[in-house]
Structure formats: structure tokens, C-alpha cells
């Protein structure tokens, strides 16, 4: 085993984790602020990929798909929050969970009706096709691009939450919505935007993943399971946790694939079990929350 191979493997893991981070972030934001366990999150990842493909084929450009699909699906997410989820806030936590669970099935079947069962190819945009020589080995340029986009999105998200008034309201609303209401903040509007943001992030993950994996109606199922593992390891509701755990899982899968490929799918669950035993609230979670 030479060092170059291990370095390449680490890098593959980061690229793999980058997509997971996008999905897990949305899941975590929505749970952290709204207390909704969004089981439709994987399906919305898939819808994002299809929306990207659809827009790219209409406009002839991947870039429009990358830009517009997350906005479009994010808006669709806001519609879901406003029409379907909001009436359930006063009920038990299980109700939105069941609703989103059913919604996932509806979305998958709708996509099957519209685009077929077989899935569709999503060609790598020509500007980003090819392989780059990293010095330690060759790596697809597109995967480097994905890591770059995710890094930029994370930076913007951090700035937005830490440095803007809206971010302040969001953070405060997550801690104590009651007080926020008393202070005259329209919490309902904040939650609407937060849900849309979370859905937009997973849709972006879907569009980014599409040229690597092609697009199919089932693509969200596995991603959802992985994203849940990431949020549990990182701590439910913790954004830093989602980022760290997402990259950690990507690297763990990648390194296991190198030494024991058959174990690569199981390793993240083993890791989750370990974290739950040692630190039940997750790496960055606050005790007592879920």
C-alpha cells in the first residue's frame, strides 16, 4: 500500500462525503429548527436531480440546471411546508414524520410516471469532463468541481447564519420560538424559509450527484439512509456536526473500500453504533435533544 494510493483514497472519500454533506445539512437544518424528521428528503434529492436534468435539457446548459433546479425545488419545498406540514406542527412529532414518509412515495411514483422507471443518463458537462493530475494520481475534474461548489455553499451558509439578521433570527428561533413570537417575529415565515433552504440544499446535492451517477427514481433512498446516519453521528440538528460527520463517513467508506471492500457499506452503520454507545447525542449534538 503506497502513500499515493492512500492519499487518493482520502480524496475520493472527501468527494463522496461532499454530496452527503449537502443532503445531511438540509435534513439537520429542518430537524434542528422545525423539529420535523423529513423522510421525503431523499426523494427531494432525486427530484432535484431530475429537475436539473430537465432544465439542462430545456436550456441546453448544465449550468442553468445547477443554478435553477435548487431554487425551483426549494420553492416546491416551501409549498410543501406551507400546505402540508404547517397544519401538523401542533400535533405530535410523528405526524409530520408520517406525512413526509408518504410524500416520499408519492414523489417517487410521480417521477416514475413522468420520466419512466429506467432512469436517465446525465452527461458530465463538457467543460468539466476529463481527468486532472493531482500529482498523487488522477482524479476526475468534475468531482473536484463538486468539492469546490460544496465548499462555497458551506461558506455562504455560514456567513448567512452568523453574520446576517435573518441568520440571527433563525438561530434564535431554533432555541426558543415562543420568545421569538412574543418579540414580534413572524416565526411561521422563518420556518417556511428554513424548510425551503433545507430542501434547496438537498436538491443541489441531487443535481451535483447526477453527472457522476446518472439519474433514477430510486437514487434518493440510499442517500436518505446515509444522510440519517450522518446526522445521527454529527448530532441531530447540528450543522457543524452534519459537515464533519458527512466528510468523516465519506472518508470512512473510502478507506474501508481500500482495505476491505465488502465492508464498505457496513462501516458507516458500525460507526453510528459506536458513536451512539459512546456519545448518544452525536459528536456535536446537545444532550437531551431527540
Amino acid at each position: 500500500m503506497d502513500a499515493e494510493l492512500i492519499a487518493m483514497q482520502l480524496f475520493s472519500g472527501v468527494a463522496l462525503g461532499a454530496i452527503l454533506v449537502m443532503v445531511a445539512l438540509g435534513l439537520s437544518i429542518i430537524f434542528g429548527m422545525l423539529g420535523v424528521v423529513n423522510f421525503a428528503h431523499g426523494a427531494l434529492f432525486m427530484v432535484g436531480a431530475y429537475a436539473g436534468l430537465w432544465i439542462a435539457s430545456l436550456t441546453g446548459s448544465f449550468w442553468w440546471g445547477l443554478l435553477l433546479a435548487p431554487l425551483l425545488v426549494g420553492a416546491f419545498g416551501m409549498l410543501i411546508e406551507r400546505v402540508l406540514i404547517r397544519p401538523l406542527y401542533k400535533r405530535s412529532i410523528d405526524d409530520p414524520l408520517l406525512l413526509t414518509f408518504g410524500l416520499a412515495y408519492v414523489l417517487v411514483e410521480a417521477v416514475r410516471i413522468l420520466f419512466g422507471n429506467e432512469g436517465m443518463p446525465f452527461p458530465t458537462p463538457p467543460e468539466l469532463a476529463g481527468v486532472a493530475d493531482l500529482g498523487i494520481g488522477y482524479f476526475p475534474i468534475y468531482r473536484l468541481f463538486v468539492v469546490g461548489v460544496v465548499a462555497v455553499v458551506l461558506l455562504l451558509l455560514w456567513l448567512g447564519l452568523e453574520k446576517t439578521k435573518f441568520g440571527l433570527i433563525v438561530r434564535a428561533g431554533a432555541r426558543d420560538p415562543q420568545i421569538m413570537r412574543v418579540l414580534g417575529v413572524d416565526v411561521a415565515k422563518v420556518w417556511l424559509l428554513v424548510f425551503g433552504l433545507g430542501v434547496g440544499l438537498t436538491a443541489l446535492g441531487g443535481v451535483l450527484a447526477a453527472p457522476m451517477r446518472s439519474v433514477d427514481p430510486e437514487m434518493g433512498a440510499l442517500v436518505l439512509a446515509e444522510a440519517f446516519v450522518v446526522t445521527v453521528i454529527g448530532g441531530m440538528g447540528s450543522l457543524v456536526g452534519a459537515v464533519v460527520a458527512g466528510l468523516l463517513i465519506g472518508i470512512a467508506i473510502s478507506m474501508t473500500a481500500l482495505f476491505a471492500p465488502e465492508m464498505a457499506t457496513i462501516v458507516m452503520f458500525a460507526l453510528m453504533a459506536l458513536v451512539l454507545l459512546v456519545r448518544p447525542q452525536g459528536l456535536f449534538g446537545k444532550p437531551g435533544r431527540a
Binding site: 483514497q9 475520493s12 468527494a15 488522477y138 437514487m219 471492500p261
Partner: peptide, 20 residues
């Protein structure tokens, strides 16, 4: 010989090793 799970979407983690 590298085994992968059926229906796997991502094979990137196997590629550096196959190349090596």
C-alpha cells in the same frame, strides 16, 4: 477482485485501487 453491493450508485472509492 473487488466486490460491490448490487445497485451501488458510486464506484469512485474502488477506482484508485483498480488503477493501482
Amino acid at each position: 477482485e473487488i466486490l460491490h453491493p448490487i445497485g451501488a450508485p458510486d464506484y469512485s472509492t474502488f477506482m484508485p485501487r483498480l488503477r493501482a
